[in-house]
Design a protein around this nucleic acid. Sequence first.
DNA 1: GTCTATAGGTCGATAGAC
DNA 2: GTCTATCGACCTATAGAC
Lengths: 207, 207
Amino acid sequence: MSPVGSGEESGDTAVGPKHHRDAVQQAAARLFSEKGFTATGVREIAGEAGVDPALVIRYFGSKEKLFLRTMTMSVDFADLMAGPLDGLGERAVTFVLGRTRTGGPSGPYGAGGERSYSAGVFAALLRASDRPTVRAHLAETVEEMFVGLVAGRLDGADADLRARLMAAQLTGLMTSMHVVEDPGLAAASDGEITRYYGRSIQLLIDG
Amino acid sequence: MSPVGSGEESGDTAVGPKHHRDAVQQAAARLFSEKGFTATGVREIAGEAGVDPALVIRYFGSKEKLFLRTMTMSVDFADLMAGPLDGLGERAVTFVLGRTRTGGPSGPYGAGGERSYSAGVFAALLRASDRPTVRAHLAETVEEMFVGLVAGRLDGADADLRARLMAAQLTGLMTSMHVVEDPGLAAASDGEITRYYGRSIQLLIDG
DNA sequence: GTCTATAGGTCGATAGAC
DNA sequence: GTCTATCGACCTATAGAC
């Protein structure tokens, strides 16, 4: 739920040695965000993490719980949304377009041991949203990222609604680019997309 | 690919009596759009259609081919996009919001024997877009519905890009409402959503 | 804590009788 | 054309030995 922390959720059922758990989480994050929920098997995750398949379940309870724990929006994105409202539209679009990777320029792994690809995370979540738990997780993410981080700071009427519609616009860009993978959008220049789409989003922010 | 026709695609491998094929297509369209691709079994489709499960495969080759054939955007939506550009933004939003059902007010089944729920179709396609064929089908739909039907009629620069971004905005609204199912959006009034979001879309149309 | 072996289930697709 | 029976492949999750 909360953006990827430092993996210190020690209040949980902390089973297994930490480096094994982290290895599983890391492998899961990469595979899930790259191939999606169904196409990624527990055996595969275990293989990449170098642990036994049975341990994956033992550590996290189920494949689905592991998915929910690992597929979480990047902290960078939250930082962005918490930033100044002025020019936020263009900045958000730029982020969605270019910054697919998170957790440092190209360093190995983040402090928490996980490396998230925002685009992949989003696509995986959307595609697995048949599952009620995943759908709830998605809705919660939207709630925290947008309603929570920007709605309260919007001037004018219908702040809550405008924040949600802004979220919808960003959702649309992410979906078109990373789920539908519209080749026409991929071919377009980032600058032009940012200009047109950023203006639309800013319009909702400014009211 | 083409919006749901009258089921007259007789150039194909036309196996089975027409009313049986239609029954299968009808059941498939309903179940797929309601429960998605993976959650809908061939046996279930056959059961609802009143035919033998083996025939479903025999008629359509595979579950996936049946899915691609049945999950197709409504003709109503195409008509809308082909309509006048003036006020198109608001009309499109209104369609996405209210008009989930297609093919007549509440009559039994359309002329072709299929009944499509646009929202469900979209959600199902998006959620099954791990599969390359489905993803291609989606991209193609966007291409036909937007680039094909509106881009050519847009005045000003970057017509093609603007049409795609308009598609992205609509995609975002559909995704937020019918895939993520944001409760905050569901609770908002249609009129307000239409006003805010319609204006954003119209901005791209007008350039 | 860790691994082996397997349970237990689902599903799409097929072969062959009628 | 239609249906019965079943194959065969896949998966997550678990029970129990070490």
